[in-house]
Write a protein that binds this DNA or RNA. Structure first.
Lengths: 339, 339
DNA sequence: CAGTGAAATGGGAACGCTCCCAAGATGAGG
DNA sequence: CCTCATCTTGGGAGCGTTCCCATTTCACTG
């Protein structure tokens, strides 16, 4: 079915292809009358410009590559949604690539760029990207924005969340509610976010003049199972811990399981706070007090930034955007201040 | 930074662009020695063919449009993952479009086709696509596969699940476990899947010689809230209903909330089954007996089919693939047969 | 009514590739 | 040593646009 081209439109409208192109791109002067006529012909013939031909000469695809560590994890959906909404608004398409947390898959999204399939890349949750790859991207001057990875040495624009501050606020909230012996369940040591949350916890204690006790620090790896185990240890080790700070919600869920099994009531017997505000928690009866990353907003902002970079490629100064975590006041903390 | 083109490679290797093209596409005869040389030069110059230029002449983009009703809903992730895995294997990229359940957004994915950005479209969960649009796609002879929507009149290939059979098996399971008075919570009337599940329920009762009672049929709209309300009604209306069949898991969750509030123990006081096997349920302590759509497999198969259609465009006969639902035996049904 | 500048239009080159066709190289067979 | 088939290579056209430049049209002004 011979596709309609710009020539067909030109012929039908009795003008040259150049004029059609002009109305298509709203560039240059076109007599209003002919403009209307051409528009009418386009509609009549159901003409749509071929994007490949366009890209070939303009060097723009109006497509961005969206890289996600793992498409299966609902955690990333809000980021994607935020990015998508901006994309739609600016008429950008999104090419989806999941990196599977694998360094070896980095070539897959790199190739999108090399083959000029995309104008830039939005790397969501860049925690899994190797340093050498980031340096490579930097040297390539690729339009790219990385979400959820702090890059201090690199000039690449990033969108992040202030984990230190978030954990500080949360810990402080526990302190204000009279808690003094607060166990802390850490995440993986190699994860910046996990370390930062620990730092916030530490700072809050310090500012409250409470001595940090290493014995109250437990280790997990962000899974429900590891939260389960850590919680069992905590309960075994102490009978005067009044609150537990889980550095993500997954581990808090593991904790809840322990409490259920042992008949421990939250928050009457123990107060807990989590971190991340994962969707699954909304299904649980107890509203958890937790911190939320503004994921939608981060995706949204990241995409906006990326498009900005793509569209005025000159005089860019790299931006490092940092959002605050949002404190979500649930019902898993009890005020135990003596009155 | 002047991008490397096929000419640069040709020049450096001392051959013509045609020869380079030949080794690029592994088409036609090329002397093994020159082939190696060209390959080496490509690597040296880090040459990658421009996809727009290629598409312009071949009319193939090696990209497929993946349409999902709502990217925010984790329900669709398994479909996407299945499709993606096939895409990667066959070197297809995926353009992501969410339809937002809105008919008015149909133009957004249509345009991907019209602008020749994609070679075909995989419409996941086509429940939300208007009939007129489907007819349009059919008439356009667009390479398309629709997942999760039964199309009897149309010639478009689909991948579906046998809801009738699934509901039959589940209902039968309840019957085998001694339940006779089984309430049924329906989904929206305009949804094929919901109606089919009702049909399966009906058939099972019929084959078991149990008279269908309209009074045991309750209506919901697949939300947790509607399940909550329906369950309250059921409990109000009857004291001898021993089992409830929720036609999706979301409504079953609503039911669980009622039971918790009223101190009703599942499965001791009442047996329940759901349908869909949504991820959130894994976080709940009670393993629900439910039906699972093989979502990963459906996405996988749909994508395979689509690529097959795209790649040998001739003599296609439309396929209608139907998977069985998988029965997931949880712990929410009690055997109450008199012994 | 000639002259002028702006508005409107057309034509051609270029984008980077594939593909067809023609031509040169090679080698076997007589 | 010539012939012919096969392998190998090069050149040119064409894919559907955009964009630059040249040309035509037009409305005014003096």
């Amino acid at each position: 079915m011979g596709k309609i081209t710009i020539f067909d439109v030109a012929k039908e409208a009795g003008v040259s292809k150049s004029t059609v192109s002009r109305v298509l791109n709203e560039k240059g002067n076109v007599n209003e009358k002919t403009r209307r006529k051409i528009l009418k012909v386009m509609e009549k013939l159901n003409y749509h410009p071929n994007s490949s031909a366009r890209s070939l000469v303009t060097k723009k695809t109006h497509t961005i590559g969206l890289v996600v560590p793992n498409i299966i994890d609902p955690f990333f959906l809000q980021f994607i949604k935020g990015a998508e909404d901006v994309g739609i608004k600016n008429e950008y398409n999104m090419m989806l690539v999941s990196s599977n947390w694998q360094v070896k898959d980095e070539w897959r999204y790199l190739r999108l760029l090399e083959e000029d399939r995309v104008d830039g890349i939005l790397l969501i949750s860049g925690r899994n990207i190797s340093d050498s790859y980031i340096e490579f991207l930097e040297s390539e001057k690729t339009p790219i924005v990385i979400i959820d990875r702090v890059l201090e040495k690199n000039i690449i624009p990033t969108v992040n969340v202030d984990n230190v501050n978030g954990a500080y606020i949360t810990t402080n909230y526990l302190l204000e509610n009279g808690h003094r012996k607060i166990a802390f369940v850490m995440g993986p040591n190699n994860m910046q976010a996990a370390l930062n949350r620990y730092e916030g916890y530490k700072n809050a204690l310090y500012d409250y003049n409470i001595k940090l006790s290493d014995e109250l620090i437990y280790h997990g790896n962000f899974t429900k199972e590891s939260g389960y185990q850590a919680t069992q240890k905590i309960i075994n080790d102490w009978d005067d811990v009044t609150a537990i700070f889980y550095s993500n919600d997954g581990m808090a869920l593991g904790g809840l399981k322990v409490f259920k099994e042992k008949g421990i009531i939250v928050p009457d017997d123990i107060s807990i706070v989590g971190c991340d505000n994962i969707r699954e928690l909304s299904l649980i009866d107890l509203p958890l007090t937790t911190l939320s990353q503004p994921r939608y907003k981060m995706g949204y902002t990241g995409m906006e930034l990326l498009i900005k970079i793509i569209e005025n490629n000159d005089n860019i100064y790299p931006e490092k955007i940092v959002f605050n975590m949002e404190f979500i006041n649930g019902q898993s903390v009890k005020n135990i201040s003596a009155r």
